[in-house]
Design a protein around this nucleic acid. Sequence first.
DNA 1: ATGCAAATGCAAATCGTTTGCAACTGGAAA
DNA 2: TTTCCAGTTGCAAACGATTTGCATTTGCAT
Lengths: 143, 143
Amino acid sequence: MDNEARKLREYEQRLRDAGVRITRPRRAILQILSQGADHPDAMELFRRALAIDPTISLSTVYRTMKLLEDKGEIQRHAFAGGPARFEQAAGEHHDHLIDIDTGDVIEFHSERIEQLQDEIAHKLGYDIVHHRFELYGRKRKKK
Amino acid sequence: MDNEARKLREYEQRLRDAGVRITRPRRAILQILSQGADHPDAMELFRRALAIDPTISLSTVYRTMKLLEDKGEIQRHAFAGGPARFEQAAGEHHDHLIDIDTGDVIEFHSERIEQLQDEIAHKLGYDIVHHRFELYGRKRKKK
DNA sequence: ATGCAAATGCAAATCGTTTGCAACTGGAAA
DNA sequence: TTTCCAGTTGCAAACGATTTGCATTTGCAT
């Protein structure tokens, strides 16, 4: 049950089917995405990718993330005051809580919030195209 | 009832009390803030300020916005994919719905959403320091 | 194997914003 | 009301994140 290798193969398959060439740098990035489920930024992806393919360039990381975003394979987030961070698109919709001390990202989902959003937008005469709901907080000290 | 002039005087008073020098460029910016209740970005503020004080510089606009933010007179927002936009801090807390076609900003407030946020953060073991809740939508066509 | 459009690395450009520095100016003190 | 100087300014250069032009490679369909 090599989950990581399976994920990688699935990425490649879906992209090939979409007419995307699987190049060396792209494979490196897909491999990284297959590994973890965290929220790295471009520079971090670049660092990890260098370990796999020492000739990859930062621009290719950016170009590849743009491509993967267009293909719906990843999501791009712009959390407050930092570079864009990416995550696999797989999985259901969720929002984020960002630990302002560590930068850690915690995912959560609330059906009631989704409902409320629609309600509010509707009341204002709008249809929601997308939203951004981010909580910035600090770990509660157990007193 | 010159509301605008009154607002300006109040801004100046509060800032003086906080030990802030009221300079020519700052007065120009305060005057602009006193006028409207929209959400201009730095460049737009710069343009409007030039009409009042033709010698003002863009860096001073940025420096002044930072100062006003620190003093709690304005709030800074970074809506998706654009420059920072500012608004007067006066008034109660609210969130934003951004018209993705026009860039218009509509303010709204939902007590239930505020509650839910606290609930969620608490459940995750966090205290909320601030949050970002933005809806991006498009005016509903009456069919 | 071959050919070529697509993808790459590199460096330079871009955008929004911040900063170093020398000149200038509020406004408190005299 | 003048003096004084720390705070403020304009300018240009620096900045961080991201994008782009271009000459050179490289997938991969043939």
